[in-house]
Nucleic acid binder design. Sequence first.
RNA 1: UGGGGUGUGGCCAAGCGGUAAGGCAUCGGCCUUUGGAGCCGAGAUUCGGAGGUUCGAAUCCUCCCGCCCCAGCCA
Length: 565
Amino acid sequence: MAIEETTPGLNFIRAIVEADIRAGKNGGRVHTRFPPEPNGYLHIGHAKSICLNFGLARDYNGLCNLRFDDTNPGKEDVEYVDSILADIRWLGFDWGDRLFYASDYFEKLYEYALHLIRAGKAYVCSLSADEIRAYRGTLTEPGKDSPCRQRSVEENLDLFQRMRAGEFPDGAYVLRARIDMGSPNLNMRDPVLYRIRRESHHRTGDRWLIYPMYDYTHPISDALEGITHSVCTLEFEDHRPFYDWVLDNLPVPCHPQQIEFARLNLNYTVMSKRKLLELVDKAFVRGWDDPRLPTIAGLRRRGYTPEAIRAFAETVGVAKRESMVDMALLEHCLREDLNRRAQRVMAVLKPLKVVITNYPAGRVEEMDAENNPEDPGAGTRKLPFSREIFIEQDDFREDPPKKYFRLSPGREIRLKHAYYIRCDEVVKNANGDIIELRCSHDPESRGGWTKDNRKVLGTSHWVSAAHAVNAEVRLYEKLLSVPDPAAEKEEKDFKEYLNPDSLEILKGCKVEPSLAQARPGDFFQFLRQGYFCVDPDSTPELPVFNRSVTLRDTWARIERSRQDK
RNA sequence: UGGGGUGUGGCCAAGCGGUAAGGCAUCGGCCUUUGGAGCCGAGAUUCGGAGGUUCGAAUCCUCCCGCCCCAGCCA
């Protein structure tokens, strides 16, 4: 694994793993696995688990398998396995030749089931789904034994084989573990091991008519692969006694240890597969890779880097308490990565024309611009400057408020890498809209300096009108308008909280000429605005940029706090 | 009113009997040809609450309270 992060501090799982290594457990071996079900796209929460499992293997000289938990054919699809493979690879992890599918083990799983039946530890039950539920009891009352619990081994064997052979319709029988209907842990009240499903499986086709349940499949799959530490999320804590029961009652090669941690929750977004699927299916977003979604595909299209996501996964930590991580932390991780690496470029999103009246018409100067002040090795490039330029509409106020350090009538600012300009005249149309500024430049300020060292109010980005490239820019905001719909007073459907302003498409943006060559996947810092990446929709005729994250914006904060008052 | 977990500043999170790490966010200041970046500084007399043990407790004990998960032939 070519991951460069230094070994992170110890979380409780690493503490367990290190203690096991010290104790010589598993011969000092560490072997984890990431076990997604191919029924949806991976999201940032999965990324945390991926980084955890692959990171454990990386840091303790171990291995991490990728295994698809594909035991429910009705919900699963190859589209999902393909996307999952691509996303994990993109995140920077490598499972080597250890790509497995639970469906690879169907035959062995079946044989193990036979073993349980012969040992009197599993039986075929003819109760209906409703009856099983009724017999299960409740949280506070014990369940009742199924009348089928005493079926003979021979009859169970015969029935189970015939279930496989397809002699019965869906739902006619299930295979159940015989444990304890009085257990306070519902998962131990004779859980279902196999159900009949006449469904075609994306890998095994129509070979199977019975499918094993997750709780039965998972421990055996782990054992067959020699997993040492089986890391999963908190909701499976109650399942651990059954995980152990399966392994204790079957002649499996080893007994992995299941360890549970709290899943990641992020505010202002949705993380459940069900909700993500709904947003995609009902076209609230443009697809699984919509840049507003916390899916890996969406984050990638948004401009997130694998490095930023990995750093985030390390930073949030691993623990057992339910938590809600602030989206600002994710954004911070992206900024930190991109600040070091992104080339700075000039892009005017909402253009305002400026005519520099004392600059000769037809003259073009090539100004030197550094590509990245954080990285001297990034070099410089030439920017054409001419009499007519565009600046940002936000960089001019006819009536500037206090602390506004930008252009206004009579005031002087610096055009980054170019000249100082002073605003002499504001041109408006019949509606009173400002359509043009007439300014004069100081020829002595070429490059953005003057000998007298006088201070200017601020520095603006700009682009030469004659040389600018037209572009489309997509601005993204939070997916939800509230941090946590579940915490709202009124219980509404989560879709009620979708932020109506999560996407703003800007046409007619003006970007510096070098950006005509930008390719999908390239990322930049649009000076003073944020980090942007080239969208796959981009064409040579019309580049399309996605805003990945804004720069920290002190002025915006001042204005916001003024509004609050 | 069964069982399993969990409660440390706004959000994460260390800490495992010796007197509250770190990150994000926030607020000041410095610096700045990005109101970016960077740098410096501020904030829990306190660890869900109440008792107790101890020279000493976030860490041990007792009781109480809050929150999460479990009654799929989903994972």
